Structures are given as C-alpha cells and as structure tokens.
Amino acid sequence: MDGEVSHRVAVRPSGVELDVLDDEDVFTAAQRLGYRWPTLCGGKGTCRTCFVQVEEGAENCLPVGPLEREGIEALRRPVDGLTRLACRLRVQGPVTVTKRGVRRRVQE
C-alpha cells in the first residue's frame, strides 16, 4: 500500500472502518481487509444485496454509473446518491454508510 491514497469508510452499525484505495470499490476493500460483506453475486453488481445507505460524505462518492443506476432503480429506491451499491461505490474522501451484516471473516 506504499504511496497509495486511501479514504476512510465507516460502516454502521458494526463500527467497521475500512481504508478504501483510490482504485477500488467499498466491497472489494472490505474483502481485502478480511470482512464479509453481504452479497449473492460476489461483487458483479447484479444481485443488489450489497446496497448501502450513505449517511455522511455523499459529496466524496464518485457518480452513479449505468449498472449501479439500474440496480438502485430495481431496488425501487431514488437514484439520489444516498442509496449505493457497495460493489460499485468508489470514494474520494471520508464516507459513513449503514449496512447490516458486515463482519470479520471467521478463520477456519
């Protein structure tokens, strides 16, 4: 991670804090850091299970792309930048999101 820029994403209610790199989405960062994030499709943007509610820092989120827009609309939520898919959400500064079920992966 030397020389790479990361941004803090706080996940409520679990209290998890992720350092998300510039070139990765929140879902990928969580996996890299050893967290289990609810998903069915494994981060392909098709199941919409990973969706989050942005509580703070929406201005630090990159814009919603076409696949993410389709997913948010399928959830019957407004495409207002506050409901996002973690597997598509890239950030450029601190963000706080709400997502239940995020937890440390159990070591086998």
Rank of each mutant, 00 (worst) to 15 (best):
S6Q: 12
A10H: 06
V95G: 00
P63D: 03
E108G: 13
V11I: 11
V54M: 00
R105H: 08
P13Q: 04
V79S: 01
Q92H: 04
R90T: 13
V106G: 02
R100C: 10
Q107L: 14
L75D: 12
A29T: 09
G65Q: 11
D23C: 10
L82A: 05
V106P: 12
T28M: 11
C41Y: 08
V95F: 01
S6A: 14
D23E: 13
L40P: 00
L62N: 01
G3N: 11
E59A: 15
D22S: 14
V54G: 03
P13H: 06
E59M: 05
G57D: 04
T96F: 04
P13N: 06
A58V: 12
S14L: 03
L33P: 00
E24I: 01
P94G: 06
Q92V: 10
Q107N: 11
P38Q: 05
T28H: 13
L82K: 14
V52Q: 04
S14W: 03
T83Q: 07
C50V: 03
L62G: 00
V9E: 02
L85A: 01
A74E: 13
V106T: 13
E4T: 14
F27S: 06
I72L: 06
E70P: 10
P38H: 03
L33M: 14
P38Y: 00
L85Y: 00
T46P: 00
V95R: 01
R90C: 09
V95S: 00
L85F: 04
R76L: 14
Q53E: 13
L75F: 07
Q107P: 08
P66C: 02
S14R: 04
D22I: 05
V106D: 11
C47M: 13
V52L: 08
G34R: 13
V26R: 07
G93D: 00
R100N: 12
G42F: 05
L82M: 11
A29L: 10
W37I: 08
D22F: 05
C50T: 03
R76D: 10
F27P: 06
V64I: 07
K44A: 12
D23A: 14
R104P: 09
P66Y: 01
A10Q: 09
E17W: 01
A58Q: 08
R105F: 08
R105T: 12
A30E: 05
R69P: 03
R32T: 10
T46G: 06
A30I: 08
R12V: 11
K99D: 01
K99C: 00
L40I: 12
E68I: 01
G93C: 09
G43R: 06
C41S: 07
V52M: 10
D22K: 06
G42M: 01
R69G: 02
